[in-house]
């Protein structure tokens, strides 16, 4: 989709600067590509040759068979930034900083690249550190719960996540799904509830009292919620924590 735009703006006279072909998968975004181009050709980040870099950058985008739409946006935004910088370099610079010096249009991009490069380097360094579970290992003694009583620790959400991860690891990450056939259908139950409500409003407690077992309770509750959502019934609670009354819609003058 950007070919048409590029064709107008780019003349292919820079073919002599052919770079080895690269794929976007190798990169972590537009800044990564730019740094690659700058560093591999030993350019100065404080004096980026905008015309050349723009051509090379667009060249890389052009070479991709298809751009993944998820990431394409970020790459295309950078393409337009580069083209804008390129054209601004050709114009006189009216922008002045606080001290009246001219602002180089490339300053912001250079700052962005330097900031990103710092973190790119730090992330590599971090990744090279010996890491527990990858390079280093523990041999903790973990008594099985059958053999010891285990007082509950104070929990927070992060602790819970970490603990869950540990458990998953111990069971080998195997998750089994069992699919049960539905013995009671919500739809069926909706009909029953409506039928009952046609005889007049009823307290939620009363309605649920007749239900045998947990599955029936849940199904009935789901049926009530679904009916409520479809605005077939009204649910009234006159006071906090008070009893809840179910009424058929348009029947609100009648209380159960």
């Amino acid at each position: 989709m950007n070919q048409a735009v590029q064709a107008e703006l780019i003349t292919h006279e820079h073919e002599s600067h052919a770079l080895p072909p690269v794929h976007l998968d190798q990169f972590e975004g537009p800044l990564d590509i730019l740094l690659h181009l700058i560093r591999s050709q030993e350019m100065d980040v404080f004096d980026i040759p905008m015309a050349l870099i723009t051509t090379q950058y667009l060249g890389i985008l052009e070479e991709q068979n298809e751009l993944d739409l998820e990431v394409a946006g970020d790459y295309l935004v950078m393409a337009s930034t580069l083209m804008q910088l390129k054209s601004r370099m050709l114009l006189p610079r009216p922008e002045l900083d606080d001290e009246g010096n001219e602002i180089d249009p490339r300053a912001e991009l250079a700052a962005q690249l330097i900031a990103y490069e710092q973190y790119r380097m730090l992330s590599e360094e971090l990744n090279e550190r010996p890491r527990l579970g990858r390079d280093l290992f523990l041999r903790p003694v973990f008594p099985e719960s059958k053999e010891v009583a285990r007082p509950l620790p104070e929990a927070d959400l992060d602790g819970l996540l970490v603990a869950f991860r540990t458990v998953l690891k111990r069971v080998g990450g195997e998750v089994r799904h069992r699919i049960f056939t539905e013995t009671m259908s919500v739809r069926e139950r909706m009909a029953t509830v409506l039928e009952r409500l046609c005889k007049g409003g009823i307290l939620l407690d009363e309605l649920l009292a007749d239900e045998p077992g947990r599955e029936a309770l849940v199904t009935t509750l789901l049926a009530i919620l679904e009916l409520w959502r479809q605005q077939a019934i009204t649910v009234v609670q006159s006071e906090n924590l008070g009893s809840i009354t179910l009424l058929i819609k348009g029947d609100s003058n009648e209380r159960g």
């Binding site: 404080f46 004096d47 900083d97 010096n101 001219e102 180089d104 490339r106 300053a107 250079a110 700052a111 330097i114 900031a115 710092q118 730090l122």
Partner: peptide, 16 residues
């Protein structure tokens, strides 16, 4: 590690 201001300053000094 340089923060944004330090980078900004460095760029302004060197880019001219």
């Amino acid at each position: 590690l340089m923060d944004e201001d330090e980078i900004q300053q460095m760029v302004m000094e060197k880019i001219e």
